[in-house]
Design a protein around this nucleic acid. Structure first.
Length: 610
RNA sequence: GCGCCUGUAGCUCAACCGGAUAGAGCAACGGCCUUCUAAGCCGUCGGUUGCAGGUUCGAGUCCUGCCAGGCGUGCCA
């Protein structure tokens, strides 16, 4: 694997322009403005010292009895003001300008100020979202160009479960960034170069003398088997291994025969990858492929430029850059080796070239790398060095969105019974088969074609959601049964919630856009659902900033749960009051659209029935 | 040795910049289908947040020291 698996805390923090221009929740912004105004008043009348001002923190409350929003500002300023927190809170409230969005304020606990939002205000937010194709999700004031490096399989091998996380999580973040209005450039940095390739070409060359072209072609279609055979030769024969290493150098020297062999691998292997992407619903295409080899011509220049900057030094025959921040086990400076003693270039050299390309040619404001956590040190070094060398502007945000290792139920790295890697395609087949059996059992009356369509959405969705719903940074326990249980916090739960809404509109013979009237939110279930609906944009913003799709999963799961509760407790079509019926239809319609949009951003396929 | 990550209910995971009574799902147990899809809803049970200190009005969250596991640490990617 090349760049298989979260979020690492870099010792060299990079600025996040995203967070500076981020549109937050409109209600929070409004409250912050009001509170700041109140603080100014208190400073002016001498209640607070002039230097007491600090960022106002507004949180959504967890408990409804605490209202909708809360601020701890009185607790923060109690000491500088020399007042008891609750007394200060009282002053703050008294100094708050009138605002129609707020129905009530209260002091609670040690000195929190709780805000209860006015129902008119909430209703107007809901109506705005309903009237907007973009669901009232704010667009950035200044869209960024975000280059996202994800999936990036090794073309020398078949894709396996280790590639799931990067591909799926990366794709969800990419979709979210695009929806928000950023300019996203996908980069599939496939491994089409390097030592492993030398081994394969050496083996291919060997086989050419022993097999017909037809046999060879057939053998190549099973890349996995081909790779194993080559690896075996490599491990067993020193002579073969030497030849393999030599071929890497020949490749780098653009030897025509080598290049021809190499081209055969690429086209076959890429077609396998594309089939998996299509099946998985990952939005990558051939246009997004820019493999390691694409930077070959620039590698010598990278080294020369490092030299020109005075960063390069030779050590034991290799061309290295030493940075003070990085030490080895003896406490001596740790090098980044950019050219081996034999003249060959390395992974690091390629990544530096890629960083420069992405900054200069692609014009990246931000670069995200969805790559295995184990490569954290490598990326820290690359990020530091690329800025030190001036390959990337200081202002560019560079983030390694690392993720944990894929483990089996035993907590050990995930393998098949015989110790091999699990092919992605096998996993997807299994998921669809299980889903098919379940769908058929629940809805035997559906025709075959629809059964298959549903099984695909449910099965593939379950696999993706299992991964998306977990925090990127922790190791991942891969469990077939859990992944495909289809109960609880799973993709089918979200899909099901959506079909329930769709079913209502089907039954009523209404289009989801054919809703009117005013919101009348009386029941707890209605209010809770409504309050959650207006938080969609805020959640998407977090996903885009942090690269954590599990936040969107959590939101959608809670939204679906709140809808289910509403659905059970509040009759919609059977409502006796026509105005109430219209209000509930509107709530259902907005829920449906939010769920659908959210699922699409996760790369799930919403279904009208299941 | 040094560095990074992880440790929360029996299991899998949440917990927004330090905030109020640490939440879900699975499993277990008990209710709810003549009424919009029961892949659902409602409820019960389940916790010394690895351990010990510290900072704070307030700590799962921040600091220090331990313990356990994983990963990384010069010519692989």
């Amino acid at each position: 694997m090349l760049r298989v698996a979260c979020c690492v805390t870099s010792p060299f923090p990079v600025q996040s322009p995203a967070s500076q221009t981020a549109p937050t929740d409109p209600m929070k912004e409004r409250l912050i403005t009001l509170i700041e105004s109140a603080l100014d008043t208190l400073i002016a009348d001498g209640t607070l010292p002039a230097d007491a001002k600090r960022p106002v923190q507004i949180d959504r409350t967890k408990d409804k009895s605490h209202g909708d929003f809360a601020t701890n500002i009185a607790l923060m300023l109690a000491k500088p003001a020399g007042m008891k927190p609750r007394d200060l809170a009282e002053k703050v409230i008294a100094a708050l300008p009138q605002d129609s969005a707020i129905a009530k304020t209260e002091i609670a606990g040690p000195g929190f100020i709780n805000f209860f939002q006015a129902s008119d205000w909430l209703n107007s937010l809901l109506d705005q979202a309903l009237a907007d194709k973009h669901l009232s999700v704010a667009r950035p004031e200044q869209p960024q160009t975000v280059v996202v490096d994800y999936s990036s399989p090794n073309l020398a091998k078949e894709m396996h479960v280790g590639h799931l996380r990067s591909s799926i999580i990366g794709d969800a973040v990419v979709r979210t960034l695009e929806f928000l209005g950023h300019n996203v450039v996908r980069q599939n940095h496939v491994g089409d170069w390097g030592t492993q390739f030398g081994m394969l070409l050496a083996y291919l060359d060997e086989q050419k003398h022993e097999e017909s072209a037809a046999e060879l072609s057939s053998e190549l279609s099973d890349l996995e088997g081909f790779y194993r055979a080559a690896k075996q030769r490599f491990d067993e024969s020193e002579e073969f291994a030497t030849r393999a290493r030599g071929l890497v150098v020949k490749l780098q020297a653009h030897d025509p025969d080598c290049l021809k062999l190499w081209g055969e691998f690429n086209s076959i292997s890429l077609s396998h990858c594309q089939a998996v992407y299509d099946r998985l619903g990952v939005s990558l295409t051939a246009d997004d492929v820019r493999g390691e080899s694409a930077y070959n011509d620039d590698l010598s220049q990278v080294v020369a430029d490092l030299d020109a900057k005075g960063l390069l030094s030779e050590d034991q025959g290799a061309q290295c850059v030493f940075m003070d921040e990085y030490k080895n086990k003896e406490g001596d400076p740790l090098p980044v080796i950019v050219q081996k003693a034999d003249g060959g270039y390395l992974y690091a050299t390629t990544d530096l070239a890629a960083l420069r390309y992405r900054a200069n040619t692609l014009g990246a404001d931000r670069m995200l790398y969805f790559v295995d956590q184990r490569q954290a040190l490598h990326f820290q070094q690359m990020f530091s060095l690329s800025k030190l060398a001036g390959f990337v502007p200081e202002s560019t945000e560079l983030s390694h969105m690392g993720f944990g290792t894929m483990n089996g139920p035993d907590g050990r790295p995930f393998k098949t019974r015989d110790g091999g890697t699990v092919k992605l395609i096998d996993l997807l087949n299994e998921a669809e088969e299980r889903a098919y059996a379940l769908v058929k059992e629940k809805n035997p009356q559906l025709d075959e074609e629809e059964l298959r369509t549903i099984a695909r959405a449910v099965g593939i969705g379950a696999v993706k959601y299992a991964d998306l719903s977990k925090n990127r940074s922790s190791d991942y326990i891969f469990n077939f049964d859990q992944m495909l249980s289809f109960e609880g916090n799973t993709a089918p739960y979200l899909l099901y919630a959506y079909t329930r809404v769709a079913s209502i509109f089907r039954k009523a013979e209404l289009d989801m856009t054919q809703v009117s009237g005013e919101f009348l939110l009386q029941e707890d279930a209605e209010q809770a659902l409504a309050a959650r609906l207006v938080q969609f944009g805020e959640v998407l913003q977090s996903v885009a900033e942090k690269g954590l799709p599990n936040l969107l999963c959590l939101y959608l799961y809670e939204l679906a749960g709140l809808f289910s509760s509403f659905y059970e407790h509040c009759p919609i079509l059977n409502s006796e009051d026509e105005a109430l019926k219209q209000s509930r239809l509107k709530l259902a319609a907005l829920t449906a659209r939010t769920l659908k949009q959210g699922m699409e951003l996760l790369g799930l396929t919403p279904l009208e029935r299941m």
